[in-house]
Every structure is written in structure tokens, then in C-alpha cells.
Computed example of a mutant assay.
Amino acid sequence: MINVTKLNGDEFTVNADMIEFIEETPDTVISLISGKKVVVKEKKEEIIEKVIEYKRKILII
């Protein structure tokens, strides 16, 4: 799970395993495998780093 921020400033958690792809159009849009799309403040590279960090944590345990 990773924390991201909506454009209105609200923080929420996304299941990193549900991310299908990420676009910058110029806002960052996370598309989930369910078809839902979420627009967030973080840049694509930040989200990728958060996912990598999350995966490292769960694989070490």
C-alpha cells in the first residue's frame, strides 16, 4: 500500500498491486486494474519510487 495525495490535498492509500499504469497528462493519473482512475499531486517518478519501496518492504519480511 502506498500513500498519495489528491489534488484537493486529501491523502489516501492505494494498493500498489492494483496499479495498471500511470500517466502524466500533465496531471498524474493512476489507472487501476478495476478501471478506476485517480488524479494525484505526486509525479509519476515519485509513485514508482513509493511502489518500489513498498515492494522491498514486503519482500524482506
Rank of each mutant, 00 (worst) to 15 (best):
Met1Phe: 00
Ile2Gly: 02
Ile2Met: 01
Asn3Asp: 03
Asn3Leu: 07
Asn3Thr: 05
Thr5Ile: 11
Thr5Trp: 00
Lys6Ser: 04
Lys6His: 08
Leu7Glu: 01
Leu7His: 03
Asn8Arg: 14
Asn8Pro: 13
Gly9His: 00
Gly9Pro: 03
Gly9Phe: 02
Asp10Met: 00
Asp10Pro: 00
Glu11Trp: 04
Glu11Val: 03
Phe12Lys: 07
Thr13Gly: 03
Val14Lys: 01
Val14Glu: 01
Val14Ile: 14
Asn15Val: 15
Ala16Gln: 15
Ala16Ser: 15
Ala16Asn: 14
Asp17Glu: 08
Met18Cys: 08
Ile19Lys: 04
Ile19Asn: 09
Ile19Val: 14
Glu20Thr: 04
Glu20Arg: 09
Glu20Ile: 00
Phe21Met: 12
Phe21Trp: 14
Phe21Asn: 12
Phe21Asp: 09
Ile22Asn: 02
Glu24Trp: 11
Thr25Gln: 07
Thr25Trp: 04
Thr25Asn: 07
Pro26Tyr: 14
Pro26Cys: 14
Asp27Lys: 06
Asp27Met: 09
Asp27Val: 03
Thr28Ile: 14
Thr28Lys: 06
Val29Glu: 06
Ile30Gly: 08
Ser31Leu: 06
Ser31Cys: 09
Ser31Trp: 01
Leu32Pro: 13
Leu32His: 14
Leu32Asp: 10
Ile33Gly: 08
Ile33Leu: 10
Ser34Tyr: 11
Ser34Asn: 12
Ser34Arg: 08
Ser34Asp: 11
Gly35Cys: 07
Lys36Ile: 05
Lys36Gln: 14
Lys36Met: 07
Lys37Pro: 01
Lys37Asn: 11
Val38Met: 12
Val38His: 05
Val39Ile: 15
Val39Leu: 06
Val39Asn: 02
Val40Gly: 01
Lys41Glu: 02
Lys41Thr: 06
Lys43Gln: 09
Lys44Val: 15
Lys44Thr: 14
Lys44Leu: 15
Lys44His: 12
Glu45Lys: 04
Glu45His: 09
Glu46Ala: 11
Glu46Tyr: 01
Glu46Met: 05
Ile47Tyr: 02
Ile48Met: 13
Ile48Asp: 10
Ile48Gly: 08
Glu49Asn: 11
Glu49Ser: 05
Lys50Asn: 11
Lys50Val: 04
Val51Cys: 10
Ile52Ser: 13
Ile52Met: 15
Glu53Pro: 03
Tyr54Glu: 00
Tyr54Lys: 15
Tyr54Arg: 15
Lys55Cys: 07
Lys55Tyr: 03
Lys55Asp: 02
Lys55Ala: 09
Arg56Val: 11
Arg56Trp: 08
Lys57Ala: 11
Lys57His: 04
Ile58Ala: 08
Ile58Glu: 05
Ile58Pro: 02
Ile60Glu: 12
Ile61Cys: 10
Ile61Arg: 13
